[in-house]
Design a protein around this nucleic acid. Sequence first.
DNA 1: TTCGGTAGTTGAAGCGCTTCGACAAGGACC
DNA 2: GGTCCTTGTCGAAGCGCTTCAACTACCGAA
Lengths: 322, 322
Amino acid sequence: MAASTVSYVLSGKRSISSATRDRVQEAVRVLGYRPNASARALASNRSNVIALVIPLRAGMHVPVLMQFATAVVTTARRFDHDVLLLTADEGRSGLERVSQSALVDALVVMDVELHDERVPLLRELPMPSVLIGIPADTEGLTCIDLDFFAAAEQCVDHLADLGHHEIALLGTPSAVYERQTGFAARTVAGFQAAAERRGIAGIETPCESTFEAVLETVGDLLREHPGITGVVIQNEPIIGPLLDVLRRLGRRVPEDMSLMAICADDVAVRQVPQLSSVTLPADEIGQQAVETLIAKLDSDLGPGVTLMPAQLTARASTSTAP
Amino acid sequence: MAASTVSYVLSGKRSISSATRDRVQEAVRVLGYRPNASARALASNRSNVIALVIPLRAGMHVPVLMQFATAVVTTARRFDHDVLLLTADEGRSGLERVSQSALVDALVVMDVELHDERVPLLRELPMPSVLIGIPADTEGLTCIDLDFFAAAEQCVDHLADLGHHEIALLGTPSAVYERQTGFAARTVAGFQAAAERRGIAGIETPCESTFEAVLETVGDLLREHPGITGVVIQNEPIIGPLLDVLRRLGRRVPEDMSLMAICADDVAVRQVPQLSSVTLPADEIGQQAVETLIAKLDSDLGPGVTLMPAQLTARASTSTAP
DNA sequence: TTCGGTAGTTGAAGCGCTTCGACAAGGACC
DNA sequence: GGTCCTTGTCGAAGCGCTTCAACTACCGAA
């Protein structure tokens, strides 16, 4: 019984008689044999590990990140890969390190900015990568994200259909806009485009993720634009505070004020009243990212941008304009 | 110039003349040379990767987990190690896989239950590990956690010192108790012990992490125990809802009701009013875990339990009993 | 019957490092 | 001047796999 035979049984890369295969598998089982990962990686030039670069920056909503990360790990395991966790604060050098040392076979990069310094590097690296988020120039890249432009449009359309003609977008913390994060910019663009198309007034404002900030931002907003009857909210952690603030201000949802959220479904459903929302499908995006990466690994799949379609669910937080 | 010489320059394991060293370093710089991680691991029997097992279970508060994870990754990088992310749903087999294939050198396991099925396995594995959390039998293990018993005691003492004699512990979701998670059990024990010692009434109840659950739980609590004037809260995500519920019920904080939280400092400070709290030092625990692990890696450090001391900070949410 | 082809198996080469033992050169000591 | 030790460098072995080329055995077609 040659070592190579065992290798072929385990990898299935050559035909093996069923007798031999059974014998090998039995021995593997009995001895509890596990191939050494480093030796395997050295010989095959594949580590079966992918890197996941997670942002740790101001304004990012942690539970959503974790949802992405979980989806990535779970899907990677389905394809017999493991996940190496990198934090974005290592920046370019972290990516260079893990790819040039062949620690990983491929990269998943989250929280991509419009003009991300890592993008040129990703183009050069001799290793497939998938971005979660869309930079300004996607030439030669593989990117996946929710279609935030369409998401915002759908929110506006839904409110416009209900007869609202002055609505607001309560956005992400200003830090997120300042670093030109793609998803935030695309949401604003979609919001403005749809408002214009529908001939209604659309006011957008950033909002920090604290109760006081919501209190102040919403207070200012309603003072300056008393005609607002609909709000689109993109910043998940302020959903609770916003509902609270509206209650304090005596505005009932949805009677006086309609609310649309762009957030995970379970978050929307957990509120009182349940929120009409466009789903942020973090699970599917993470899963899709890994599946694409695996495809690129063993078939030189070309680059391309995948926008997950936005899907709106009307619930109890929106109604016809007062 | 022998390959071995380069290796010795890079690792510093033998003395090298400064002339040679400079020449090698210059060449490394110019060529952008990076040692191949797999080859290095195969030859040296060290992958320089540690596994981090993260729970994805009901009732766990995600931002805190992320804080642990971040601290672990950052600290690991300080010691020139990387982090492989495992989810707890792979259970024992995940641990066996990564350790037996020598994918990693060591393990950090989070969210340990009192009778965790992974504990016996960890004792057997030929590889150091550190648990974040304390199981029932710590024989032969290295564990680190906040001293939740003392944390609860300090909360009770603080309230008792202020003259309260009927207080409640608003705990974690019941799922966390049911699976006998150590930190929750130790908090309850400390709460009860201190209440008894101080001769005051201590009522403890689990609480799910939704607004309605808080509304109902607190409603029931105050109906059955109308004399309660102080609450200790261990469940971070319900801090906001709790403040809201008390407001609705017309109980002012701290005039009518004193509040103590066991949570991260920044969370306590972000509330209105700012909460008196015992800090949950996730950063330090994560950091300490990795430092201990590194020490075990290259010096056969013995096992042992490290309880991080609890530290109480009085803020605006506690005052003398009404 | 002979020949080409296919399926099954094998030994050997080699992946890119680390580490061990050997060895040369030089300094200290008697 | 010879011996011993230290310091710096090197070649070779080997880590545990994968993969290639080669070989055997056997089958069907000519």
